[in-house]
Write a protein that binds this DNA or RNA. Structure first.
Length: 510
RNA sequence: GGUAACGUGACCGAGUGGCUAGGUAGAGGUCUGCAAAACCUCCUACGGCGGUUCGAAUCCGCCCGUUACCUCCA
């Protein structure tokens, strides 16, 4: 079954085929680095991280580009709108680039802790002024932009008159946009049409971040950087462009117009993917509601909106339990449930290490999943296990349906656990199928879903030692001692499991 | 105000015109010195009101609620 993805551009699921296999070009709109990333900011990177991981699992060579917006993102469209970076810098008496660097560092750290692989290219808008000026010049040469008082605006009505489809991505018609545009906004008088948007803005005297251009000193419009940098690193036409639903209009709409209006006309990406938004306790995150939570705040528990801290992996797993195109609501209850589920999956990895480790080097006969059995009747236990192991991949193929994939991984884990309690059934499955299914589980949990163990105070060795004492005490029937050891470990989040075959430990799921 | 989307059991969330989602929580059981974990079993819902249909939670309409975009926002 081939990978299908929902394309916002066509409003349907389409079979994904790269333009130039095995290469895949993926662009994701990155952060504007003027403050700490909040919980909602994490969803897109996690979604597209799983997509990248899955594409790589499928054998594609992915070039993953995620930009850093450090210039041009204004507080509003009005001329008086301040650059977000400059505003933050002024408030703290810092250089704008100092602010950008600080929050870029903090962003990278947060992304790494969330298990998001770093992008292959992480271009900064301020480092690509030349490319942005060049693109603006191209659009001017095409006659789809005009200069006004040192600023350059994209001419939306003319673009559409010449066959452009501004509004296609977001399903809007320009006339409706015009009707709904607030005309009282300052700076509109330079525009020929309220729907026009800035490619290049003239810098006011007090504006700090400014560059020389053919139109005077100024700075690039926010939408321009993604067009310029995606073209530079992925080509005029590439495979996938991602971002949050809120960026669909106007940001991505403008990107498409800019791409089409250049000397290399193309919408840019063939697939436009949009992840849905996050609410906290049923409401949009906002400072006034007191439910605005940044990533560092959640990880440290320094927020009144939650009763305790939650780890990055808990948050990652929480997001994966919902489909990326559905809204998701975050709460204490939901996070606690996610934490337990996440730990259960990780305990599964440890179980498999034990099960497959017990197999030794003996190899069994090959069994293939999804092989049509020659004879009718119920599939063999080995076949059943392999079928379970194949299911999660099929769900990922279906528009990256991580919740169904996760559910199928839990089904697989349950089968492993059942087998672990029943040696006869385990023997019936055989080593080959067990190894293959275990490999699939590890691939899914670690490589595709990107879940990993989070550092804990206790090392494997230390626990082994402690378990030795535990075993001794138990053999001596010194139950006071036994209970003492168990209590001590439990306070560290570790529980002891007395099994028929020996003593083991696992993470407490409390 | 305009335009979209969503509303599922105690909680988070899949999914679908008739067939078990899954996780968490809860109940009973197996195992166990007691537990925990694991396993087995149970609880099993689709905002409200109409309509289409043999049959709808799934399609249509209206209402209510939430969210998003229209204005910076993942």
């Amino acid at each position: 079954m081939p990978l299908t993805l929902y394309n916002t551009l066509t409003r349907q699921k389409e079979t994904f085929e790269p333009l130039h296999p095995p290469q895949v070009g993926l662009y994701l709109c990155g952060p504007t680095v003027y403050n700490d990333a909040h919980l909602g900011n994490a969803r897109g990177p996690i979604v597209f991280d799983v997509l990248t991981r899955y594409l790589r699992h499928l054998g594609y060579q992915v070039r993953y580009v995620r930009n850093i917006t450090d210039v041009g993102h204004l507080e509003s469209d009005a001329d008086t709108g301040e650059d977000k970076l400059e505003k933050a810098a002024k408030a703290k008496k810092l250089e704008p680039m100092q602010v950008a660097q600080h929050y870029t560092n903090s962003y990278r750290q947060a992304m790494a802790s969330l298990g998001c692989l770093p992008p292959d290219i992480e271009p900064q808008a301020s480092g690509h002024i030349t490319e942005q000026i060049a693109l603006t010049a191209e659009i001017l040469e095409r006659g789809l932009a005009y200069e006004a008082n040192g600023s350059v605006y994209f001419d939306v009505p003319k673009y559409n008159a010449e066959g452009g489809q501004y509004g296609r991505l977001s399903g809007r018609v320009v006339e409706e946009l015009l009707a709904g545009t607030r005309t009282e906004l300052a700076g509109q008088e330079e525009k020929r049409s309220p729907a026009d948007f800035a490619l290049w803005k003239k810098a006011s005297p007090q504006h700090i971040m400014r560059w020389p251009s053919p139109w005077g000193e100024g700075f690039p419009g926010w939408h321009l950087e993604c067009s310029a940098m995606s073209r530079k690193y992925l080509g005029a036409e590439f495979d996938i462009h991602g971002g949050g639903l809120d960026l669909m209009f106007p940001h991505h709409e403008c990107e498409i117009a800019q791409n089409e209006g250049s000397h290399t006309p193309s919408p840019g990406a063939r697939f436009w993917l949009h992840n849905n938004m996050l609410t906290v306790n049923g409401a949009k995150m906002s400072k006034s509601l007191g439910n605005f939570i940044t990533l560092p705040q959640m990880f440290s528990g320094q927020t009144s909106a939650l009763s305790q801290s939650y780890s990055p992996m808990t948050l990652r797993f929480f997001f994966l339990q919902a489909h990326y195109r559905s809204p998701i609501d975050l709460s204490d209850d939901a996070l606690q449930a996610a934490r337990k589920g996440y730990r259960k999956l990780l305990n599964g990895l440890r179980l498999l290490d034990k099960l497959t480790g017990d197999l030794g080097e003996v190899s069994g006969e090959e069994v293939k999943a999804e092989e049509t059995p020659a004879k009718p009747g119920p599939p063999s236990p080995a076949q059943q296990l392999l079928n379970l192991a194949a299911k999660p991949f099929a769900f990922l193929d279906d528009d990256l349906n991580t919740p169904r994939a996760v559910a199928a991984v839990f089904d697989l884990l349950k089968r492993f656990n059942t087998l672990a309690t029943n040696p006869a059934a385990l023997a019936e499955v055989g080593p080959a199928a067990l190894r293959e299914a275990a490999a699939a589980y590890r691939t899914l949990v670690q490589d595709v879903l990107g879940l990993r163990d989070e550092p804990r105070a206790n090392t494997e060795d230390l626990l082994g030692l402690t378990l030795g004492f535990y075993q001794e005490a138990k053999e001596a029937k010194a139950y006071d001692k036994v209970d003492q050891i168990r209590a001590a470990l439990k306070s560290q989040g570790i529980v002891i499991k007395d099994t028929k075959t020996g003593v083991e430990w696992a993470y407490s799921e409390e």
